[in-house]
Nucleic acid binder design. Structure first.
Lengths: 163, 163
DNA sequence: CGCAACTGTTGCAGGTATGCACGTATTCTG
DNA sequence: CAGAATACGTGCATACCTGCAACAGTTGCG
């Protein structure tokens, strides 16, 4: 935690800043969630797609860990994605116990579609903010992302959130 | 969209700023999601609790709209929450067609518990950021929240995201 | 080589989400 | 007051998520 008490005049308390982040997170999710509304995949399935887009050698064990579920569930979730033509599975030539999960072209398109709509929604809001405030926001968020990546493992889990 | 082109020197493009928000959102969700891991409610159920905490006269119709599902599903989701002792349902004396959904004491405790853990997780990251950057971040997020609330209906839907 | 460890699969079982159609109670409207 | 509109509930059907246990194929190690 290490609440920084050596700030200049506490014109704004640390707790207030945390509040601002929490409220913004809630709105951020509310804004970006509709981008998944008309997509024909469930949330766990979408999270698998996001993981696959970030890890070119994703295996089922990682999927189960990322979803926080039993490995058998990962198997079946990926089975459905493969059946839907969104995911591809191959044996790992280096270790034939494992299978490598990759996005199909359709899977990438679906992901790009959702991300594109999220981007538009965020852009709409961002365009309403004065330029200097927006610059400070972007700088702060980059620092936040860097700190978060440093604290929570270097590899951002990339759990495609939603709903 | 209205991409502001009249910024000072474009030391950072608008698209880069949107990227920063998207990446931060992803990490934000990844950080706050584990707060729901050991809670015994599903995501739709949790969203209902969040809605109930923000609307003291929540009815089933609003739940269905907020979840984006068929009204019958809202009925049953709330039934399960009532059975779990997390939600309370009463007839609306003003309009006996409707039902008023309120959090029970246990429901509020569950919500507070999750939010508390989210707060700690965010605070941990925030504490790593220099004070001035953090101040700019908080200011930017407040502007973002205000703009988002202005664009997407005054009443933040408060869809308790996760996973 | 033989055994342990790892990765993934399948059968089994329960809970949940979701939509649709139909019915009930209540309120509003002409 | 009669009919429309609204808010819910129930029955039914389907798909998905989830865990557990048991099993097969591969790899690594002594």
């Amino acid at each position: 935690m290490a609440i920084p008490s050596s700030c200049s005049p506490p014109e704004e308390s640390f707790d207030d800043q945390v509040d601002a982040v929490m409220r913004a997170t809630q709105l951020l999710v509310a804004i970006t969630a509709p981008a998944m509304a008309d997509v024909d995949v469930t949330l766990p399935q979408f999270r698998v797609l996001v993981m696959a887009s970030g890890d070119p050698s994703l295996n089922l064990r990682s999927v189960a860990a990322g979803l926080g579920v039993h490995p058998s569930n990962a198997t079946r979730a990926c089975d459905r994605l493969v059946a839907a033509g969104l995911l591809d599975r191959r044996e790992d030539p280096a270790d034939r116990r494992q299978i490598v999960l990759t996005l199909t072209e359709a899977g990438r398109r679906l992901l790009d579609s959702v991300m594109g709509r999220r981007r538009v929604a965020i852009g709409d809001v961002l365009a309403e903010i004065p330029g200097d405030t927006r610059a400070g926001l972007a700088e702060g968020l980059k620092a936040f992302s860097a700190a978060a990546a440093r604290l929570h493992g270097v590899h951002e889990p990339s759990t495609g959130w939603a709903p």
